[in-house]
Design a protein around this nucleic acid. Structure first.
Length: 802
DNA sequence: AGCACGCCGACT
DNA sequence: GTCGGCGTGCTC
């Protein structure tokens, strides 16, 4: 039996399968979708079996070294999907498959020296080899570099050998359990007089007091105050048994989640859910856009659709944006479907993600709630995929494979003949356009549940405030409303739009702005560490006290951060209790949740934060939402700037007045006449859509054209210019007359990590060969020996131009 | 990617 | 003469 294996080398020249013999003992075991270890040249590598067959045209094939999984980790569907994914994102197959699995399953490699002829070793070398008789190369280069040459020599002469080890990052968590053992032994011990072995007695009586069974060792130790050694001696005597068992880490352990029942649907909701239920009932693939205003009860529609899928014995995937994967959101799903829900998001540790994922593989759960990568959940009976806030940019992965979760979901929906539900109050233009064209079904939810009114929005032009002599960052109206809220015991949310408005350092005398020496971007000031940091390459430096350019001391932090707003707020509203949420206050695990819980329990009057508080929050006492800088994003060199502004304002406004109390929103900015701000304040998606579509059509942007993007980067400017010009001329000869070629031009971020970046853009409607041309270009420069170290990435459907 | 093989300059 | 620099090509 022969296995076709893709190996763990992300490189063009090995982006194919290699044939290996399945050793006779493993023939009944090997299956497509399993991870294996195979010899590859002198090394050993992890790989995936993609297919098994009876013969191979390659001669001299080697054996598979080891099979890593008892069951395939990639289903046949995922094997197909991975191929499609790699080809459509111009990624390597191995990269696509690895993206589908939890990081814990990726291999790590280590090289070791082992001793073949110990008698030939000098004592200096011999002492390095521990009892196991091996020594990692890593250890040598770290601590004994001077011996490296000697070791290599010894390898040549056959005294030492080199072995390559493949390890899994996966750690299965083991917990020790104790149970009562030999009863007479135990009783004898208890009957002993005196103070001897007091702790051991305590352990025995604790176990006797409980119903027979196994108990976590940790728990018993905690209850009795005994130490591990006492239990170990009990074990030696045979009075107790200690057993190690594999357990799942449970990130939601000890949490009491109230079970909920399906709510009666409003007429609106009933209309919206009907096409979804029909699609489920008829086993027919449909993509359904549920366009519902904030607070219109989309989640209840999701929950009841899932219920109907589960009733048919099928499984469900729910995608939510990373940032809104809050406990509040998770609880709604756990509350309805209990322990049949697995949760996958980035705040979990590698081990926790691995455990949640294994619950899916072992069919112990039938619902997954997770961020982008959860779209690859290895269900085999998929009945629905729901993408909440489908317009969110976090559904697009920005490194390889550059996939969009929406596209993957639709692929899977076709495969399983099941519905894909896209939910949003502000659908991506592409999505709404498709719904209008009839490629997706459109379900509108135009009013909030219980007919709560949409919050009233007031726009404040900060230029007018300035004219009135108000130089603070809060308008008079916002101040009044904040004060009134505190007096009434209601809560407020203050949202600071920081995108495109990074806090940088500026010299007021000479205009110097601190820049990253490796990237064309200003450094961001982090007050907490007193340092300046580059968001692109991680470069850090100490904040200067004098201007490096003119030595002036008038160099100061510029731009508004949440910290600054908090300080300002303390000055003007000292009585307000404020909770600040931003990357600084939520970096510790669980702190995100803690802050939200205490806000929910009324421990603060104002929740102040960035992007992360814009979505999904649902607090009944929030009646006021203030947006501090609504227009900052509009000036970004991004054709989606208006769309993003509209979406964000709509999302934030939706946090107000979701329950009995009426909501009020105050939007502050300088460029407030802009249609995206005006129309968001009127809750008028359709007008925004029509307006924005005209703009996109005029400028030939999506959804009227797809964006193909080729990005070149190199340490030398000349090289990128030359290469991108060559590529542009190659493409211009081939593109259809309906397509547009733009560039080459410098990328919006012209330099990252010392590398210059140039790009060629293609706007096209139908260009079936574009993928191949991109591949040709990439292959051409890879072969070209006159240009070294040129990096090229190609994207067929770019979401942003950065 | 990483490793070996192999062909040229710098040194004992 | 040998050591080691990195350019080239291969991995079932």
């Amino acid at each position: 039996m022969i296995a076709a294996v893709v190996v763990d080398v992300p490189s063009g020249s090995v982006n194919k399968t290699f044939d290996y013999k399945v050793p006779p003992g493993l023939e009944n075991w090997a299956e497509p979708g399993m991870r294996v270890i195979v010899p590859f040249g002198p090394r050993k590598l992890q790989g995936f079996i993609l297919a098994v067959k009876q013969s191979s045209s390659v001669k001299g094939i080697k054996n598979i070294t080891e099979i890593l999984d008892p069951l395939p980790v990639l289903t046949p569907e995922l094997i197909d999907l991975g191929q499609w994914l790699a080809e459509n994102t111009l990624s390597f197959y191995i990269t696509a498959y690895q993206a589908m699995l939890p990081a814990a399953m990726k291999a790590t490699y280590e090289k070791f020296f082992t001793v073949l002829r110990p008698e030939m070793l000098s004592s200096e070398v011999s002492v390095l080899f521990s009892a196991s008789g091996e020594l990692s190369l890593n250890e040598v280069t770290k601590n004994h570099v001077h011996l490296l040459k000697k070791l290599q020599e010894l390898t040549k002469t056959g005294v030492l050998d080199v072995v390559y080890k493949v390890k899994d990052k996966a750690n299965k968590k083991k917990v020790k359990f104790v149970s009562l053992g030999n009863k007479t032994e135990a009783e004898e011990l208890l009957n002993q007089n005196g103070k001897r072995a007091e702790k051991q007695k305590a352990v025995i009586s604790e176990l006797l007091s409980r119903p027979p069974g196994e108990y976590s060792l940790q728990e018993i130790l905690h209850e009795t105050g005994a130490s591990l050694s006492s239990v170990q001696s009990l074990c030696k005597k045979g009075a107790v048994y200690i057993e190690e068992k594999e357990v799942y880490r449970d990130p939601y352990q000890g949490r009491n989640i109230k079970q909920t029942e399906p709510l009666p649907l409003t007429e609106n909701q009933q209309n919206a859910i009907t096409p979804v239920l029909d699609s489920i009932e008829n086993n027919e693939h449909q993509t359904i856009l549920v366009h519902g205003v904030t607070g219109s009860g989309k989640t209840e529609i999701y929950l009841q659709s899932i219920q109907s899928v589960l009733d048919k014995g099928k499984e469900a995937i729910v995608l939510v944006p990373e940032i809104s994967l809050t406990p509040q959101m998770v609880n709604r799903f756990k509350g309805r479907f209990g322990s049949s829900v697995a949760v996958l998001h980035s705040a979990l540790s590698i081990g926790e993600k691995y455990d949640e994922w294994r619950k899916i593989l072992r069919k112990e759960v039938s619902v997954v709630v997770g961020a982008r990568s959860a779209v690859f959940a290895p269900f085999e009976n998929l009945g629905i995929v729901i993408i909440d806030e489908e317009h969110e940019s976090s559904y697009k992965q920005e490194d390889h494979p550059r996939y969009h979760a929406r596209d993957v979901a639709i692929w899977r929906g076709k495969y399983h003949s099941c519905p894909i539900v896209l939910g949003s109050a502000t659908p991506a233009l592409e999505t709404y356009a498709r719904a209008q064209k009839g490629r997706y079904q459109l379900a509108e939810l135009s009013s909030r549940v219980h007919s709560n009114p949409m919050p009233e929005v007031t726009i404040v032009d900060m230029r007018d405030e300035l004219k009135k002599g108000n130089r603070s960052m809060f308008s008079n109206e916002l101040m009044e409303k904040l004060k009134a809220g505190i007096e009434k015991g209601e809560q407020s949310v203050l949202f600071l739009n920081r995108r495109g408005y990074a806090s940088f350092i500026l010299c007021r005398d000479c205009g110097y702005v601190a820049q990253c020496p490796h990237c064309d971007i200003s450094l961001t000031y982090h007050k907490r560490y007193g340092e300046l940091k580059c968001h692109y390459c991680g470069y850090k430096e100490i904040t200067p006290s004098a201007c490096p350019s003119c030595s002036s001391e008038h160099i100061r932090f510029f731009g508004t951060g949440t910290q600054k707003v908090e300080e300002e707020l303390a000055k003007v509203l000292p009585e307000a209790r404020v909770i600040r949420m931003d990357v600084d206050t939520t970096s510790k695990k669980g702190s995100h949740e803690k802050l939200l819980t205490s806000f929910g329990e009324g421990e603060a009057d104002i929740l102040l934060g960035t992007q992360m508080i814009a979505k999904g929050l649902d607090f009944p006492k929030v009646t006021l939402v203030g947006v501090l800088a609504a227009d900052t994003m509009l000036h970004l060199p991004d054709f989606r700037a208006s769309e993003k502004t509209f979406q964000l304002l709509t999302q934030v406004s939706g946090r107000a007045g979701r329950h009995e109390l009426e909501g009020k929103v105050i939007v502050q900015g300088y460029d407030v006449e802009h249609y995206s701000i005006q129309l968001a304040s009127q809750h008028d998606y359709l007008s925004f859509y029509n307006h924005e579509m005209k703009t996109r059509k005029l400028h030939q942007y999506p959804p009227f054209y797809y964006l193909g993007l080729l990005t070149f980067s190199h340490l030398e400017l000349m090289q990128v210019v030359e290469a991108s010009e060559k590529a542009a001329s190659f493409l211009s000869k081939r593109l259809s007359p309906d397509s547009l070629l733009l560039g080459p031009v410098t990328s919006p971020i012209a330099r990252v990590k010392d590398r210059y970046r140039y790009q060629v853009m293609i706007k096209y409607k139908n260009e079936p060969e574009l993928r191949n041309w991109f591949e040709e270009i990439i292959a051409h420069f890879q072969k070209d020996k006159s240009i070294k170290d040129l990096q090229i990435t190609g994207e067929l459907n770019a979401q942003t131009l950065m």
